[in-house]
Design a binder for these strands. Structure first.
Length: 310
DNA sequence: GCACAGGTAGATT
DNA sequence: AATCTACCTGTG
């Protein structure tokens, strides 16, 4: 180890990124259910890990985003951060092409989260994360994923507080279903284990899937155990930048029923409506609607809470 | 103590 | 083809 403040602290100097956004929007982007490996630390610093890179993000008083990487940085870490944050994509301009002039609710949702981004996470890690997501809250998904990383993933260099990366699919394939259950995955362990074996038998399958056009890529993801329509679309939206992917979950079903009058519509019907109504960037629209809906009723049960005494 | 959680898959009608 | 259910388990 040579001297210098960077290696002493374990983190590189803060560097400004070409991004301005509000604190609530940053929180929604990093911790709103796209990614599950970010934690807010004292001082409003977000720390996250993906594909062997550990990064810290914070906003300055003017709302500009600043980043610091674990030191010594992994090769290509700076480029990995730009890709992860999709800095080459102008989401505000894209949001402007959504039908916000004719869709009041969409306009309101965009207005609530100006600058909301779709992350471009590693494909394989996104698949793993969303296999863990079935009927779990974000906090619990984060706990499961963190346990798998701590127990079975590679320790990152630099600051010990940088944590561990997720194990790759080859490493997951070496785990038993019981190992995964010990990480609180529950019945999801069988799905993760099944996917790991599937991928182990097909080298290059995942990479090829990521490179295919959206319909073909989705068709292939649906072959995986534990991957249905919703998870396939989440993996393609958050892990492959396919902004046409339109995941339909309980929040979107609620939004469509309450805001668009689509009461009683099935997920497949809502998915079709989304594609037609929102177009090629339906996934971006979905993220605004999702964020808005969660902000309206955070952590609340459906109305009609039964009274225990009756 | 008990329903619920950003679902999926297999059984049943 | 549409609807019902089991699957795990930490939180509220």
């Amino acid at each position: 180890m040579t001297g210098g403040t960077q290696t002493q602290s374990g983190w590189s100097d803060w560097e400004a990124l070409p991004l301005r956004l509000g604190d609530a929007v940053l929180t929604e982007t990093l911790d709103g259910g796209q990614a599950f490996r970010w934690a807010r630390r004292p001082g409003g610093i977000w720390q996250g890990v993906w594909s062997g890179v550990a990064a810290r993000l914070r906003l300055d008083g003017a709302g500009r985003l600043h980043a610091s990487l674990s030191a010594p940085p992994a090769p290509g870490a700076a480029a990995a951060l730009r890709r992860y944050l999709a800095l080459d994509t102008d989401f505000e301009a894209l949001a402007d092409t959504l039908p916000r002039r004719t869709d009041k609710h969409l306009a309101a949702s965009i207005g609530c989260f100006p600058g909301l981004r779709i992350l471009r996470q590693p494909f394989g890690e996104t698949l793993f994360s969303f296999l863990c997501s079935a009927t779990k809250r974000i906090l619990q998904i984060k706990q499961m994923v963190a346990l798998v990383a701590e127990r079975h993933g590679p320790r990152l260099s630099g600051d010990p507080a940088a944590g561990s990366g997720l194990p790759g699919w080859e490493a997951i394939a070496a785990l038993s279903e019981a190992d995964l259950r010990l990480c609180l995955l529950g019945f999801r362990a069988r799905h993760v284990h099944g996917v790991a074996r599937f991928l182990a038998a097909r080298p290059g399958w995942l990479e090829e899937t990521e490179s295919l056009p959206y319909p073909a890529a989705k068709e292939r993801l649906l072959l995986l155990p534990g991957v249905g329509e919703k998870i396939a679309d989440c993996v393609l939206l958050f892990g492959a930048g396919r902004l046409e992917a339109f995941p339909v979950d309980v929040w979107i079903l609620r939004a469509m029923a309450d805001r668009y009058g689509l009461v009683g519509w099935k997920p497949a019907q809502v998915a079709h409506f989304g594609r037609v109504h929102f177009g090629q960037l339906a996934g971006l629209a979905q993220q605004y609607l999702f964020a808005y809906e969660r902000s309206q009723r955070p952590n609340r049960r459906p109305a009609g809470n039964p009274t225990p005494g009756s």
